[in-house]
Design a protein around this nucleic acid. Structure first.
Length: 217
DNA sequence: TCCGCTAAGTCTT
DNA sequence: AAGACTCAGCGGA
């Protein structure tokens, strides 16, 4: 069997998707029509076993096409040893040459090293009790790491942790999907989106996911 | 074969 | 605030 880094799997949700879809359809008929057309809320995530490796992957994939990033990610895992879960120790122990040699940019190498160092220093949110942290706490905790911004943590919350009310107002896909769905000529500005999507609470993750779907219709 | 794009984040101006 | 710059791969010129 070919070794796969992190095959996609359905996101394990932290809420009831049927209740969310019903709530949104009632609160926003336009979105309701989109939901009816697309079908059930079905986000998927990579099979990264935990938050740490999910963030590792996120760093590698930033700003690259999936193919290119996949190549680097695979090479990186191979170089580190430890299969698909090298862990912070192997990253911290690896030389700069090893990391760069796998195809990481200098900035991404520094980011990955920062992530590993923070993990080993116990500076990251405790994964064994991740449910005790609210979205804002996790964004604050993880975005403090070099190379991890708000957007990356939002994707983690929505796709890896299955949180219900994440609103990625800066995401280009969400903005495009919103313009398509609501017949806007121009891309909505993040602040507009923040305001106008209030009615999706407490299920803004779900609304956002349907915006991405709208770009693929 | 070369070039721009990828659309995140950091760093510099 | 705005722009330069980055990893590899793809697709178009």
């Amino acid at each position: 069997m070919a070794e796969r880094a992190h095959d996609p799997r359905p996101t394990k949700l932290a809420f009831d998707p049927d209740a969310a879809m019903a709530h949104l359809a009632a609160a926003d008929p336009v979105l309701g029509a989109l939901i009816a057309r697309v079908g059930p809320y079905a986000p998927s995530t990579t099979a990264a076993p935990d938050v740490f490796h999910s963030l590792m992957r996120a760093i590698v994939y930033q700003q690259l096409s999936g193919k290119a990033a996949g190549t680097i990610h695979r090479r990186l895992l191979d170089a580190l040893g430890g299969g698909d879960t090298p862990g912070a120790e192997r990253i911290a122990a690896a030389s700069d040459e090893t990391l760069r040699g796998a195809g990481l940019s200098r900035n991404k190498m520094l980011s990955l090293q920062a992530l590993a160092a923070a993990k080993l220093a116990g500076e990251l949110p405790d994964e064994s009790r991740i449910d005790d942290y609210d979205d804002a706490e996790l964004i604050e905790g993880y975005a403090a790491i070099r190379g991890i911004g708000r957007w990356t943590v939002e994707m983690l919350l929505l796709f890896h942790l299955g949180r219900p009310d994440v609103m990625p107002i800066h995401d280009l896909g969400v903005r495009k999907g919103y313009a398509i769905t609501y017949g806007r000529e121009e891309l909505p500005k993040p602040k507009q989106l923040e305001r106008e999507c209030e009615i999706w609470r407490p299920y803004r993750s779900v609304g956002s996911w349907y915006m991405w779907r709208a770009t693929e219709l």
